[in-house]
Computed example of a mutant assay.
Amino acid sequence: MSDILKALSDEGVSIWLDDISRERLRSGNLERLVKEKHVVGVTSNPTIFAKALSKGTAYDDQVRDLAVRGVDVEEASRAITTYDIRWGCDVLRPVYDRTDGLDGRVSLEVDPRLARDTEKTVAEARALWWMVDRPNLFIKIPATEEGLPAITAALAEGISVNVTLIFSLERYGKVIDAFFEGLEKARANGHDLSTIASVASFFVSRVDTEIDKRLDKIGSEDAKKLRSKAGLANARLAYALYEEKSGTDRWKALKDAGARPQRPLWASTGVKDPDLVDTLYVDELVAPGVVNTMPEATLEAEADHGRLRGDTVRGAYDDARAHMAALKDAGVDYDDVVRVLEEEGVEKFAASWKELLDSISGELKDKSA
């Protein structure tokens, strides 16, 4: 079963797991996925942590200690999440060493309620980077307008960044520019650029969910034919932009100074439409030098029945552009789609963070009683 995942890795796709929990770490499950399923990285988000804390007893001892110490809920959330991330970094450290820092990375997101506040985002990134204290950590910063200068500032200080919640091509271009500027400032600050890493998380399935909803509302036969293809087209054009920016003199100067590329990362790759093949956003987004972060169900599906046919990105640029043009002709407003998706993404993660804090607050009260 793992042969498909090995073949995917051999195509240049780094397989990351989009999940972490204390139970997964404690049971050795993550270590097994690394050894048996070619997993070479881990991503987390507020929703994942809220779900992890709501199940089982893995966090009870730590929460009890935090309650005894009288730690407030905000600091308790940092203590709990950074504990898991630090442990995950240690599990992935052999991969980090073996790949010379390319993979073996674990991502931790800043408080999503700060997504519209540059200064607080940077301060939180610094705090989390210090608390985890592992070279294979990524700090996740959202690609909001306010997040862009925070991305630059964090990189300038030598903090490796996973830029999250990217939906639009225009915003992705700005993310790449923020990455370049951050490395230029890091170099000016005397940092070794080879120690700073970044990925740009381009969301896929959510694009289809929103656009398909609009196509269904239009209701014409032509509109129906356009369903469930926008997420792939959007991602493929993102890779085209990545290639374009990689050919600039600005990047070449940074590369000559030892910089690593900011790899495109395909996020939101779990298929939400039951009518679609469950490995769609893996098989159709194969290209060299990318990351695909998968929920475990998608990882297992790919291992079981994925259908790889080589690079499915670089030969599809013209079709992708034609599809986006057809969506516009059908009446789908792309700019409004990506605006709605970003707003919803921030709101959903903020709601999950509140759920996490509420859960921790309740646990602290129970353990201190």
Rank of each mutant, 00 (worst) to 15 (best):
L327I: 08
D249K: 09
P261G: 11
A257C: 13
A330S: 14
E244C: 04
G270Y: 10
D311P: 07
K255S: 15
A257F: 11
T312L: 07
H323M: 13
D318C: 03
A316R: 11
Y242T: 01
R307Q: 15
L237W: 04
M294V: 05
Y239A: 05
D336R: 12
E284S: 05
A287E: 02
A253G: 10
E302L: 15
S246A: 14
R263E: 12
V277I: 10
V340C: 02
P295S: 11
H323T: 07
E243H: 04
A287L: 04
D304W: 01
V291A: 01
V338A: 00
D275W: 03
V290R: 05
Y334M: 11
D319Y: 05
L308F: 11
K252E: 14
D283L: 02
A325I: 09
Y281M: 02
Q262T: 02
D319F: 08
Y239W: 13
L280D: 01
V282H: 01
G289E: 11
A238N: 01
Y317V: 09
T293D: 05
A240Y: 03
R260N: 15
T269Q: 07
A326I: 08
E302Q: 15
V286K: 00
L299P: 00
L299T: 02
D249S: 14
K255W: 08
D329W: 04
D275G: 09
V337Y: 04
L299S: 03
A303H: 03
G247C: 06
E243G: 05
L276V: 06
K272T: 12
D283T: 07
A287P: 04
S246K: 08
D333W: 02
Q262H: 14
Y242K: 04
T269K: 02
R309V: 08
V340E: 14
A238D: 02
T298Q: 05
K255R: 14
E300A: 12
E300T: 10
D336W: 09
D335Q: 14
V338K: 01
Y334H: 13
R307H: 12
T248S: 14
V271A: 05
T269A: 04
G247W: 07
P264K: 01
K252D: 12
K255P: 04
R309H: 12
L285G: 06
D273L: 02
K245R: 15
G310L: 08
